[in-house]
Design a protein around this nucleic acid. Structure first.
Lengths: 258, 258
DNA sequence: AACATCGTTCTCTATTCGTGAACAAAAATC
DNA sequence: GATTTTTGTTCACGAATAGAGAACGATGTT
């Protein structure tokens, strides 16, 4: 029945409080946010501190995330084959397009940018890596979503859709149509959708089983990207096809017909 | 009495298993390493998985570290003032010395390199950031240790000392002497000690209270570093003095006399 | 096809978790 | 500087659960 350890879950939730909360918090503040008693929070904190997951500022008696999380987070990247594998391709794509290149993967119901190469231009589009976001919200994550099962897509789209710009999607029907477009086209092209004045293209990377394991996106200011969109599209598609081929994917034989 | 939550501690220890173990592990292997029943490990894993701290490979039924740890690890760096503060200084020091520059901090009984700038030379000394190591083992961490209380130093040195090279320290007395040298000299110079053919220099950064908050080390191949050691020492000391001054440390007034 | 091994589920009891109150130690207020 | 408020920490207790161990079911191996 009960497959979850409540105190472990509380410990996890406590750590995650620091993702959106202030960098340092006290026992009382955490107990309010977690809706747990001060005593329980205090026990959680001392336990997590003894393991290096939490660090205590002895002067202010406030608590912060500990350095063990730094080690673990670093391991996630080091253990992740696709990140190491993609690095040279991302670098090459940056060299050829001169715009931001990001690698996007799926984790549960969310998407995450796990690797990037910044544009050398002084005015450039930037984004934060390692933070989760909804799968319907960016071109790279929509490419991932486009190749998932219809059931999974519905599950994702059941969540509330927030419009970011006048050009953002507002209805579920609109996104479902977009996902079909992506599959037919083989990539996503998105201009001024989430951010005004920003244009991005994204394409999927397949592995030997035909699964989409990641997507790559090239994003930049519309006034630089739109004039050279044919070049960028060409470089992007060449890159993901090379990567997929190296992973054992056969484009001719198993081209997806969803 | 009991200030520690056993299941939370078990969860932490489970996650840390992946630091030195294989990148993917199953229930049985983890239960053996943790000396817990399979059922208990399974509950830990499902709980940690539901919070994104563990990821399950559905094909192999094996478990790995989850992406939430990536977010949290990234936050540790982002929240850490000294890292952001030191970045421009580290970059400048790299530009002037052309050798590896690292920032070292203390965490409990360990030391960690939290930031670095790699040498542009094709042959260069490199090291891994974010991993903990004993405070007596590198020049940067010995600088940190040198400004701690004698009680703390003894606590650290009580641990077993492992010699890395023929020039490494072998006795506690030898290290205590070295710590005193560092305080008198104001920096550490270490040639061929831990790694043959490698020379490094390290110096402390003080804050307004006179505490050493971090140390900076410049490390490179001995045949490049030794000929220009005066230049490197000068640049290093200038840098840490500037940083300490910016943090509010007064060299004249509060020079430590330990 | 029989076997071994692994992940998962189940039941049960000793253990422990979380609460709420009390205490102590700082901060903030006057 | 004294008082009040707020904070971190400790404690005791009852309800909840964590962990052991065995059994099940699913893989993959010989």
């Amino acid at each position: 029945m009960d497959q979850v350890l409540s105190s472990v879950r509380n410990g996890c939730k406590l750590l995650k409080m620091f993702l959106d909360g202030p960098p340092e918090m006290g026992v009382t503040e955490l107990s309010k946010r977690l809706q747990l008693s001060k005593g329980a929070v205090h026990k959680l904190l001392t336990t997590l501190e003894s393991e290096g997951f939490i660090r205590k500022n002895e002067k202010t008696k406030q608590y912060t995330l500990g350095y063990t999380l730094l080690e673990l987070g670093d391991k996630v990247i080091k253990n992740h084959d696709i990140v190491a594998f993609s690095t040279p391709y991302i670098q090459r794509l940056l060299a050829r397009t001169q715009e931001l290149v990001v690698l996007c993967i799926q984790d549960g119901k969310d998407a995450i940018y796990v690797s990037k190469a910044d544009s050398p231009h002084p005015i450039r589009f930037t984004l934060e890596t390692y933070r989760r976001f909804p799968m319907y919200s960016t071109s790279a994550s929509r490419v991932l979503l486009a190749y998932r099962t219809p059931e999974f897509q519905d599950e994702i789209l059941r969540e509330e859709i927030k419009g970011y710009t006048p050009h953002s999607f507002t209805s579920v029907e609109e996104i479902k149509q977009n996902l079909q477009d992506i599959r037919e086209r083989g990539y996503e092209f998105s201009s001024n959708r989430r951010n005004v004045g920003v244009t991005g293209m994204a394409a999927p990377i397949f592995d030997s089983t035909g699964e989409v394991v990641a997507s790559i996106s090239v994003i930049g200011p519309s006034d630089r990207v739109l004039p050279q969109q044919d070049v960028i599209r060409n470089e992007l598609l060449t890159t993901v096809q090379e990567m997929s081929a190296e992973l054992g994917y056969r484009y001719q034989l198993t081209r997806p017909v969803l």
